[in-house]
Design a protein around this nucleic acid. Sequence first.
DNA 1: CGTTGATCCTGGGCGC
DNA 2: TGCGCCCAGGATCAAC
Length: 305
Amino acid sequence: MPELPEVETIRRGLEPHIIGLRLQSILVTDQKILTPSAREGRLAALEGQRIEGLSRRGKYLVMELTRQYLVFHLGMTGQLTLRDPRRPDSRAFQRTITGLERCEQHAPDRHTHLHIIFDDGRQLLFRDIRKFGRIYLLSRTNDELAGFFRAHRLGLEPFTAEYNLKAFLARFRNRKLRVKSLLLNQSFVAGVGNIYADEALFEAGIHPARRVSSLRKAEKERLFFALPTVLQRGIESGGTTFRDFVNSDGERGNNQEKLLVYGRENRRCLRCGTPVKKVVISQRGTHFCPTCQPLKRRRTRLDRD
DNA sequence: CGTTGATCCTGGGCGC
DNA sequence: TGCGCCCAGGATCAAC
């Protein structure tokens, strides 16, 4: 479930600690998470390369090395944590109450599929219970990164200049799918997943089952502003942890306490008190307030005969 | 091309 | 206590 805010939280946590480090060795214990570009010993080429940058595009985390890019996608349950073997580990990846577990690194276990060992002895561990995560290896010398994102059809990047109202409105075209489905499509706005899609639609007062073609301009504009709002809130709260997300220090996020509809089925809407409903759209659990996000436009004086 | 639905994967929660 | 069942969902791919 790592979406843009969770990946950005990890990026910000790792960046100050790993820039400048040299990769000493890579240990792979499950090839499943490696795409063909990173398989069959190709990761050995990383040894000796230095980390020059750590960036993010949508839900992808990009480690910029001397000659190559190591690209991570965390899928549903992917975790990237730093570990110093000279320091004590937390006992296990136990579920803990938010805030209790502070800066406790975790020892590798049977779900840890990749170890990157740095020249100072520290390790970056990739752990992924459901193995939906993927690791890609790209050339940096003949820059394959832009082509990679093009091939994966990544759309507008929030918090950049390309995320502007004109480009946003242009991406609706004459599409017929439901607005929730559009938000989950990474070729629309990159980095939005199930949680933040529901939150943005609540923020914008739009029913998730609305057909995109039925949206009025004012509604599209509200959505344009709602998306960065909920994403920014997620980043500032250190990401959303329902079960598996932890930051690079092994800590849980706090944004689950700030969510307005996601995971609040049958509980009262925090704005109006109506019980929050949950339906399935595009095979995804979808939460909304039937009052704040009406499916049909309420009749107003102007609508009457 | 646009859209929908199956698929991958594991642990947790539930009913019995 | 334990078993079987079902659910959670991001991206990809097949099908229409």
